[in-house]
Write a protein that binds this DNA or RNA. Structure first.
Length: 336
DNA sequence: AAACGGTCCAACCGCGGTTTA
DNA sequence: ATAAACCGCGGTTGGACCGTT
Protein backbone atom coordinates (compact mmCIF):
# COMPACT_ATOMS: atom_id res chain seq x y z
CA UNK A 1 0.00 0.00 0.00
CA UNK A 2 0.95 3.59 -0.36
CA UNK A 3 3.35 5.28 -2.62
CA UNK A 4 6.70 3.83 -3.44
CA UNK A 5 9.57 6.03 -2.35
CA UNK A 6 10.56 8.50 -5.01
CA UNK A 7 14.19 7.62 -4.66
CA UNK A 8 16.44 5.55 -2.54
CA UNK A 9 17.00 7.23 0.74
CA UNK A 10 20.68 7.34 0.31
CA UNK A 11 22.82 9.75 2.23
CA UNK A 12 21.54 13.27 1.94
CA UNK A 13 23.78 16.25 2.19
CA UNK A 14 22.97 18.82 4.82
CA UNK A 15 24.23 22.22 5.68
CA UNK A 16 24.91 25.30 3.59
CA UNK A 17 24.44 25.14 -0.13
CA UNK A 18 27.37 25.57 -2.44
CA UNK A 19 27.31 27.77 -5.56
CA UNK A 20 27.52 24.64 -7.67
CA UNK A 21 24.45 23.17 -6.06
CA UNK A 22 22.62 26.43 -6.48
CA UNK A 23 23.44 26.58 -10.14
CA UNK A 24 22.28 23.03 -10.65
CA UNK A 25 19.04 23.71 -8.87
CA UNK A 26 18.41 27.01 -10.61
CA UNK A 27 19.09 25.66 -14.05
CA UNK A 28 16.85 22.70 -13.40
CA UNK A 29 14.02 24.92 -12.26
CA UNK A 30 14.62 27.21 -15.21
CA UNK A 31 13.90 24.27 -17.43
CA UNK A 32 11.11 22.59 -15.54
CA UNK A 33 9.69 25.25 -13.31
CA UNK A 34 9.28 24.98 -9.58
CA UNK A 35 7.20 22.22 -8.13
CA UNK A 36 7.40 18.46 -8.19
CA UNK A 37 10.19 18.68 -5.70
CA UNK A 38 10.49 14.98 -5.20
CA UNK A 39 11.86 14.64 -8.68
CA UNK A 40 14.45 17.36 -8.26
CA UNK A 41 17.14 15.41 -6.39
CA UNK A 42 16.85 12.41 -8.68
CA UNK A 43 16.82 14.43 -11.88
CA UNK A 44 19.59 16.78 -10.89
CA UNK A 45 21.79 14.41 -9.02
CA UNK A 46 21.82 16.73 -6.07
CA UNK A 47 22.47 14.91 -2.84
CA UNK A 48 19.77 16.92 -1.16
CA UNK A 49 16.34 15.93 -0.06
CA UNK A 50 13.44 17.40 -1.95
CA UNK A 51 12.49 19.41 1.05
CA UNK A 52 15.86 21.04 1.19
CA UNK A 53 15.65 21.90 -2.50
CA UNK A 54 12.27 23.47 -2.09
CA UNK A 55 13.44 25.46 0.91
CA UNK A 56 16.53 26.66 -0.86
CA UNK A 57 14.48 27.78 -3.80
CA UNK A 58 11.67 29.47 -1.93
CA UNK A 59 13.82 31.17 0.65
CA UNK A 60 16.83 32.11 -1.33
CA UNK A 61 17.06 31.38 -5.04
CA UNK A 62 13.57 32.34 -6.09
CA UNK A 63 13.57 35.52 -8.19
CA UNK A 64 12.11 38.69 -6.81
CA UNK A 65 13.25 38.23 -3.27
CA UNK A 66 14.48 41.20 -1.34
CA UNK A 67 16.68 40.52 1.62
CA UNK A 68 17.35 42.50 4.73
CA UNK A 69 16.66 46.19 5.08
CA UNK A 70 13.02 46.04 6.03
CA UNK A 71 11.42 49.42 5.45
CA UNK A 72 9.28 51.26 7.94
CA UNK A 73 6.14 50.43 6.03
CA UNK A 74 7.07 46.81 5.75
CA UNK A 75 7.79 46.80 9.43
CA UNK A 76 4.42 48.33 10.19
CA UNK A 77 2.71 45.92 7.92
CA UNK A 78 4.33 42.96 9.56
CA UNK A 79 3.40 44.24 12.98
CA UNK A 80 -0.20 44.65 12.04
CA UNK A 81 -0.49 41.47 10.11
CA UNK A 82 1.12 39.60 12.96
CA UNK A 83 -1.39 41.12 15.31
CA UNK A 84 -4.20 40.18 13.02
CA UNK A 85 -3.06 36.78 11.82
CA UNK A 86 -0.72 35.64 14.54
CA UNK A 87 2.41 33.72 13.66
CA UNK A 88 1.08 32.73 10.27
CA UNK A 89 4.23 33.77 8.53
CA UNK A 90 3.25 32.31 5.22
CA UNK A 91 0.02 34.25 5.25
CA UNK A 92 1.86 37.39 6.24
CA UNK A 93 4.44 36.79 3.55
CA UNK A 94 1.72 36.63 0.96
CA UNK A 95 1.13 40.31 1.60
CA UNK A 96 4.82 41.04 1.21
CA UNK A 97 5.60 39.21 -1.98
CA UNK A 98 9.22 40.19 -2.00
CA UNK A 99 9.76 38.68 1.40
CA UNK A 100 9.88 35.07 2.37
CA UNK A 101 8.06 33.74 5.36
CA UNK A 102 11.39 32.73 6.79
CA UNK A 103 12.72 36.24 6.43
CA UNK A 104 9.68 37.74 8.04
CA UNK A 105 9.80 35.22 10.81
CA UNK A 106 13.45 35.95 11.46
CA UNK A 107 12.84 39.66 11.33
CA UNK A 108 10.01 39.33 13.78
CA UNK A 109 11.96 37.18 16.17
CA UNK A 110 15.14 39.20 16.06
CA UNK A 111 13.88 42.75 15.72
CA UNK A 112 10.22 43.41 16.05
CA UNK A 113 9.46 41.27 19.06
CA UNK A 114 12.10 42.97 21.12
CA UNK A 115 11.23 46.36 19.77
CA UNK A 116 7.61 45.92 20.63
CA UNK A 117 8.39 44.64 24.08
CA UNK A 118 10.64 47.59 24.85
CA UNK A 119 8.17 50.05 23.47
CA UNK A 120 5.39 48.38 25.32
CA UNK A 121 7.38 48.52 28.51
CA UNK A 122 8.19 52.14 27.94
CA UNK A 123 4.60 52.81 27.12
CA UNK A 124 3.48 50.89 30.15
CA UNK A 125 5.73 52.87 32.44
CA UNK A 126 4.44 56.13 31.08
CA UNK A 127 0.92 54.96 31.40
CA UNK A 128 1.57 53.77 34.89
CA UNK A 129 2.62 57.24 35.79
CA UNK A 130 -0.53 58.72 34.45
CA UNK A 131 -3.26 56.18 34.63
CA UNK A 132 -2.34 52.74 35.65
CA UNK A 133 -5.83 51.51 36.12
CA UNK A 134 -6.90 52.56 32.70
CA UNK A 135 -3.99 50.75 31.11
CA UNK A 136 -4.77 47.64 32.99
CA UNK A 137 -8.32 47.64 31.91
CA UNK A 138 -7.54 48.43 28.32
CA UNK A 139 -4.99 45.71 27.91
CA UNK A 140 -7.24 43.35 29.68
CA UNK A 141 -10.06 44.25 27.40
CA UNK A 142 -8.03 43.48 24.36
CA UNK A 143 -7.10 40.16 25.76
CA UNK A 144 -10.72 39.45 26.08
CA UNK A 145 -11.27 36.60 28.47
CA UNK A 146 -7.66 35.77 28.92
CA UNK A 147 -7.08 38.43 31.47
CA UNK A 148 -7.25 36.60 34.73
CA UNK A 149 -5.12 38.85 36.84
CA UNK A 150 -7.75 41.49 36.87
CA UNK A 151 -10.98 40.45 38.33
CA UNK A 152 -12.47 43.85 38.04
CA UNK A 153 -15.66 43.63 36.15
CA UNK A 154 -15.36 45.50 32.93
CA UNK A 155 -18.16 46.98 31.05
CA UNK A 156 -18.66 44.72 28.10
CA UNK A 157 -19.73 47.54 25.89
CA UNK A 158 -16.62 49.46 26.76
CA UNK A 159 -14.15 46.77 25.94
CA UNK A 160 -15.98 45.86 22.81
CA UNK A 161 -15.77 49.44 21.71
CA UNK A 162 -12.10 49.53 22.53
CA UNK A 163 -11.50 46.28 20.73
CA UNK A 164 -13.37 47.49 17.70
CA UNK A 165 -11.41 50.71 17.77
CA UNK A 166 -8.15 48.85 18.00
CA UNK A 167 -9.10 46.54 15.17
CA UNK A 168 -10.09 49.43 13.01
CA UNK A 169 -6.90 51.24 13.84
CA UNK A 170 -4.96 48.20 12.83
CA UNK A 171 -6.94 47.95 9.64
CA UNK A 172 -6.41 51.60 8.92
CA UNK A 173 -2.71 51.47 9.55
CA UNK A 174 -2.39 48.32 7.56
CA UNK A 175 -4.22 49.88 4.70
CA UNK A 176 -1.90 52.83 4.85
CA UNK A 177 1.09 50.58 4.88
CA UNK A 178 -0.27 48.61 1.97
CA UNK A 179 -1.10 51.68 -0.02
CA UNK A 180 2.53 52.68 0.35
CA UNK A 181 1.76 56.26 -0.30
CA UNK A 182 3.83 57.60 2.52
CA UNK A 183 7.10 59.26 1.70
CA UNK A 184 8.85 57.00 4.13
CA UNK A 185 7.61 53.99 2.28
CA UNK A 186 9.96 54.36 -0.62
CA UNK A 187 11.85 51.16 -0.68
CA UNK A 188 15.50 51.21 -1.63
CA UNK A 189 15.37 48.69 -4.38
CA UNK A 190 18.85 49.41 -5.37
CA UNK A 191 20.94 46.59 -4.04
CA UNK A 192 23.74 49.06 -3.64
CA UNK A 193 21.74 51.14 -1.27
CA UNK A 194 23.18 51.47 2.18
CA UNK A 195 22.84 48.27 4.12
CA UNK A 196 23.63 48.85 7.70
CA UNK A 197 23.28 45.23 8.49
CA UNK A 198 26.59 43.73 9.24
CA UNK A 199 25.91 40.61 7.31
CA UNK A 200 25.90 42.55 4.11
CA UNK A 201 29.64 42.48 4.23
CA UNK A 202 29.85 38.84 4.94
CA UNK A 203 31.89 36.68 2.66
CA UNK A 204 29.92 33.54 3.24
CA UNK A 205 28.27 32.32 0.12
CA UNK A 206 24.88 31.97 1.64
CA UNK A 207 24.61 35.70 2.05
CA UNK A 208 25.63 36.55 -1.46
CA UNK A 209 22.75 36.57 -3.89
CA UNK A 210 24.37 38.51 -6.65
CA UNK A 211 25.92 35.54 -8.35
CA UNK A 212 22.65 33.69 -8.38
CA UNK A 213 20.62 36.68 -9.45
CA UNK A 214 22.93 37.03 -12.42
CA UNK A 215 22.00 33.53 -13.39
CA UNK A 216 18.39 34.53 -13.23
CA UNK A 217 18.58 37.76 -15.15
CA UNK A 218 17.13 36.22 -18.24
CA UNK A 219 14.62 34.22 -16.37
CA UNK A 220 11.51 35.87 -17.59
CA UNK A 221 12.59 35.72 -21.19
CA UNK A 222 12.66 31.98 -21.03
CA UNK A 223 9.25 30.58 -21.92
CA UNK A 224 10.08 27.25 -20.43
CA UNK A 225 10.66 28.90 -17.13
CA UNK A 226 7.01 29.34 -16.54
CA UNK A 227 5.89 27.15 -13.74
CA UNK A 228 3.73 24.22 -14.49
CA UNK A 229 0.27 25.56 -13.94
CA UNK A 230 -1.15 22.11 -13.63
CA UNK A 231 0.89 21.57 -10.54
CA UNK A 232 -1.16 21.40 -7.44
CA UNK A 233 1.20 23.74 -5.75
CA UNK A 234 -0.01 26.41 -8.08
CA UNK A 235 -3.66 25.70 -7.71
CA UNK A 236 -3.34 25.61 -4.03
CA UNK A 237 -2.62 28.92 -2.42
CA UNK A 238 0.89 28.94 -1.20
CA UNK A 239 2.91 31.28 0.86
CA UNK A 240 5.58 31.27 -1.71
CA UNK A 241 3.11 31.35 -4.57
CA UNK A 242 5.63 30.71 -7.25
CA UNK A 243 3.51 31.89 -10.11
CA UNK A 244 2.98 35.25 -8.58
CA UNK A 245 6.60 35.59 -7.90
CA UNK A 246 7.55 35.49 -11.50
CA UNK A 247 5.36 38.43 -12.16
CA UNK A 248 6.97 40.23 -9.34
CA UNK A 249 10.34 39.37 -10.63
CA UNK A 250 9.52 40.78 -13.99
CA UNK A 251 8.59 43.97 -12.26
CA UNK A 252 11.82 44.09 -10.41
CA UNK A 253 14.13 42.56 -12.89
CA UNK A 254 17.32 44.38 -13.51
CA UNK A 255 16.07 45.18 -16.98
CA UNK A 256 13.08 46.98 -15.63
CA UNK A 257 14.43 50.48 -15.51
CA UNK A 258 11.26 52.32 -16.35
CA UNK A 259 8.73 53.40 -13.80
CA UNK A 260 9.13 54.78 -10.37
CA UNK A 261 9.63 52.66 -7.36
CA UNK A 262 6.22 53.59 -6.11
CA UNK A 263 4.61 52.60 -9.35
CA UNK A 264 6.31 49.30 -9.17
CA UNK A 265 5.32 48.83 -5.62
CA UNK A 266 1.75 49.64 -6.32
CA UNK A 267 1.80 47.16 -9.10
CA UNK A 268 3.35 44.68 -6.79
CA UNK A 269 0.67 45.37 -4.32
CA UNK A 270 -2.03 44.83 -6.84
CA UNK A 271 -0.61 41.71 -8.29
CA UNK A 272 0.07 40.17 -4.96
CA UNK A 273 -3.06 41.23 -3.24
CA UNK A 274 -5.51 40.33 -5.88
CA UNK A 275 -4.08 37.30 -7.47
CA UNK A 276 -5.68 34.17 -6.28
CA UNK A 277 -2.34 32.48 -5.86
CA UNK A 278 -1.16 34.91 -3.29
CA UNK A 279 -4.02 34.76 -0.91
CA UNK A 280 -3.18 33.89 2.60
CA UNK A 281 -3.78 30.32 3.49
CA UNK A 282 -6.29 30.99 6.14
CA UNK A 283 -9.23 28.87 6.89
CA UNK A 284 -11.80 31.20 5.57
CA UNK A 285 -10.21 31.05 2.19
CA UNK A 286 -12.45 28.17 1.39
CA UNK A 287 -15.36 30.52 1.70
CA UNK A 288 -14.15 32.86 -1.01
CA UNK A 289 -15.64 32.59 -4.38
CA UNK A 290 -13.68 31.43 -7.33
CA UNK A 291 -13.91 34.67 -9.25
CA UNK A 292 -10.71 36.07 -7.94
CA UNK A 293 -12.59 38.43 -5.72
CA UNK A 294 -11.28 39.59 -2.41
CA UNK A 295 -11.03 37.00 0.24
CA UNK A 296 -12.86 37.61 3.45
CA UNK A 297 -9.72 38.66 5.19
CA UNK A 298 -9.01 41.22 2.54
CA UNK A 299 -12.54 42.46 2.67
CA UNK A 300 -12.25 42.62 6.38
CA UNK A 301 -9.02 44.48 6.12
CA UNK A 302 -10.03 46.96 3.49
CA UNK A 303 -13.74 47.43 3.85
CA UNK A 304 -15.12 50.16 6.00
CA UNK A 305 -12.01 52.24 5.74
CA UNK A 306 -14.01 55.26 6.57
CA UNK A 307 -15.57 53.84 9.66
CA UNK A 308 -12.86 54.72 12.05
CA UNK A 309 -10.29 57.24 11.14
CA UNK A 310 -6.95 56.73 12.64
CA UNK A 311 -6.19 60.04 14.18
CA UNK A 312 -2.54 59.86 13.37
CA UNK A 313 0.15 57.36 12.76
CA UNK A 314 0.97 57.16 16.35
CA UNK A 315 3.22 54.16 16.48
CA UNK A 316 2.63 53.67 20.13
CA UNK A 317 -0.99 53.02 19.48
CA UNK A 318 -0.22 50.72 16.66
CA UNK A 319 2.20 48.79 18.73
CA UNK A 320 -0.26 48.64 21.52
CA UNK A 321 -2.72 46.92 19.27
CA UNK A 322 -0.08 44.61 17.99
CA UNK A 323 1.19 43.55 21.33
CA UNK A 324 -2.17 42.86 22.64
CA UNK A 325 -2.91 40.84 19.58
CA UNK A 326 0.30 39.01 20.26
CA UNK A 327 -0.87 38.11 23.66
CA UNK A 328 -3.79 36.49 22.09
CA UNK A 329 -2.10 34.65 19.36
CA UNK A 330 -0.75 31.89 21.51
CA UNK A 331 -4.13 30.41 21.26
CA UNK A 332 -4.29 31.48 17.65
CA UNK A 333 -5.92 34.68 16.57
CA UNK A 334 -9.28 33.20 16.10
CA UNK A 335 -10.78 36.28 14.67
CA UNK A 336 -12.17 34.15 11.94
C1' DA B 1 44.91 40.48 20.39
C1' DA B 2 42.03 37.28 22.57
C1' DA B 3 37.93 35.98 24.93
C1' DC B 4 33.35 36.41 25.50
C1' DG B 5 28.55 37.27 24.73
C1' DG B 6 25.03 38.92 21.64
C1' DT B 7 22.94 39.09 17.09
C1' DC B 8 21.52 37.36 12.87
C1' DC B 9 19.90 34.15 9.49
C1' DA B 10 20.15 29.93 6.58
C1' DA B 11 18.83 25.60 7.13
C1' DC B 12 16.99 21.75 9.65
C1' DC B 13 13.25 19.37 12.22
C1' DG B 14 8.80 17.84 13.25
C1' DC B 15 4.08 18.14 12.56
C1' DG B 16 -0.38 18.19 10.15
C1' DG B 17 -2.83 18.13 5.93
C1' DT B 18 -3.01 16.38 1.23
C1' DT B 19 -2.16 13.30 -2.46
C1' DT B 20 -1.59 9.01 -4.56
C1' DA B 21 -0.74 4.07 -5.46
C1' DA C 1 -10.19 2.34 2.50
C1' DT C 2 -5.64 2.47 3.68
C1' DA C 3 -0.97 3.62 4.24
C1' DA C 4 2.94 5.91 2.88
C1' DA C 5 5.07 9.75 0.47
C1' DC C 6 4.70 14.49 -0.52
C1' DC C 7 4.14 19.22 0.64
C1' DG C 8 3.99 23.37 3.26
C1' DC C 9 4.28 25.51 7.54
C1' DG C 10 6.09 27.21 12.04
C1' DG C 11 9.56 26.46 15.56
C1' DT C 12 14.22 25.83 16.55
C1' DT C 13 19.16 25.59 16.06
C1' DG C 14 24.10 25.93 14.54
C1' DG C 15 27.50 28.68 13.16
C1' DA C 16 29.32 32.96 11.30
C1' DC C 17 29.83 37.59 12.32
C1' DC C 18 30.18 41.73 15.28
C1' DG C 19 30.91 44.61 19.32
C1' DT C 20 32.62 45.02 23.84
C1' DT C 21 35.76 44.20 27.49
Amino acid sequence: MGRPPCCEKIEVKKGPWTPEEDIILVSYIQQHGPGNWRSVPTNTGLLRCSKSCRLRWTNYLRPGIRRGNFTQSEEKMIIHLQALLGNRWAAIASYLPQRTDNDIKNFWNTHLKKKLVTMKLRNGINEDKTNMAATDTASCNNNNNRCNHNKRTTNKGQWEKKLQTDINMAKQALFQALSLDQPSSSIPLDPESPKPHHHSATTTYASNTENISKLLQNWKSSPSSRPNTSSRSINKSSSTGEEGVFDHHSLFSSNSESGSVDEKLNLMSETSMFQGESKPTIDLEATTDSQGSLSLIEKWLFDDQGLVQCEDNNQENIIDVSLEGKNNDDSSPDLF
